[in-house]
Computed example of a mutant assay.
Amino acid sequence: MQYLLMLYANEDGWNALSEAEQAEGIAAYGAYAEALQQAGILAGSNRLRPATSATTVRIVEGKPRVQDGPFIESKEEIGGYYLIDVADLDAAIAWAARCPGAGHGVVEVRPVWQMS
């Protein structure tokens, strides 16, 4: 079953890190992605641009309303994701706990409702 691991963190936190700390973070995420690949469960992954680059679209009175920015303003924003294919929720949670993002933010685990 596929699960989406959504990584939430304070976007300003990255800019507050030294170059050495950023390099350490990049290495940690690289190692995590490699572990997912080696396990044969990685179906997709990407880092997202800052929430300030988001565009929100909703229908109001039958017409699209477009606004710059995320849906809600919050301290933590979604910064990236991993799409994994594992046996069950317990396995997805175990992989989420290994994600570097769980150490400085939140990793939300959500099952994918595959439309086939």
Rank of each mutant, 00 (worst) to 15 (best):
Y29C: 05
H104N: 09
I78M: 12
S45A: 15
E34C: 11
D88I: 04
S74C: 09
L7F: 10
G30K: 01
A54R: 09
R110F: 01
I41P: 09
A102D: 03
A96Y: 01
N10V: 02
N46W: 08
S45C: 15
A9H: 04
I93L: 10
A91H: 08
Q114E: 06
G103T: 11
E11N: 01
D12T: 14
K63A: 14
G62Q: 02
A9Q: 08
S116F: 11
W95S: 06
L42P: 06
A28V: 03
G13W: 08
A27H: 06
P70N: 05
E76S: 04
I72P: 15
Y29S: 03
N10F: 04
G80W: 03
S45N: 12
T52H: 15
G69C: 05
C99Y: 03
D88M: 03
I78P: 01
A51N: 13
E76V: 10
R110W: 02
V112P: 01
R65H: 09
G103Q: 10
Y3Q: 06
A35F: 04
Y3I: 04
A87D: 13
V57H: 11
G69F: 05
V66E: 07
E21K: 02
Q37Y: 13
D85M: 10
Y32W: 13
G13T: 06
S116N: 06
L17T: 04
D90L: 08
L42A: 07
E77H: 14
M1F: 12
E24M: 08
I59Y: 09
L4S: 09
I26R: 14
Q22W: 00
E108I: 00
R58D: 14
Q67D: 12
Q67N: 08
F71L: 04
I84P: 04
D12I: 12
I93K: 05
N10P: 00
A54D: 12
S53D: 12
G62R: 00
Y81W: 02
Y29P: 10
A33V: 08
K63P: 01
V106E: 02
W14R: 01
A20Y: 03
A94Y: 01
A96H: 00
G44D: 11
A54P: 05
L4C: 11
V112Y: 02
E76T: 03
A87H: 11
L36W: 08
Q37H: 13
V107N: 02
R58H: 12
D85W: 00
S45H: 12
I78V: 14
L4T: 05
M6T: 10
V109H: 00
A35Q: 11
D88V: 06
I41G: 13
I93E: 15
Q38D: 15
G44K: 00
P111A: 07
C99Q: 07
H104M: 12
N15Q: 14
S18F: 00
G25S: 13
A102E: 03
A94D: 12
Q2W: 07
K75E: 14
S53E: 14
E11R: 01
W113H: 12
A31E: 15
S74D: 06
D68R: 07
N10W: 03
M6G: 07
M6N: 09
V60L: 10
Q38L: 13
A51C: 13
V60T: 15
R49V: 08
M1E: 09
V109I: 05
G62W: 02
W14V: 11
A51G: 11
G62V: 11
A97F: 09
Q22N: 11
G40M: 10
V66R: 06
Y8I: 05
W95C: 08
Q2G: 08
G44W: 05
V57N: 13
T56V: 12
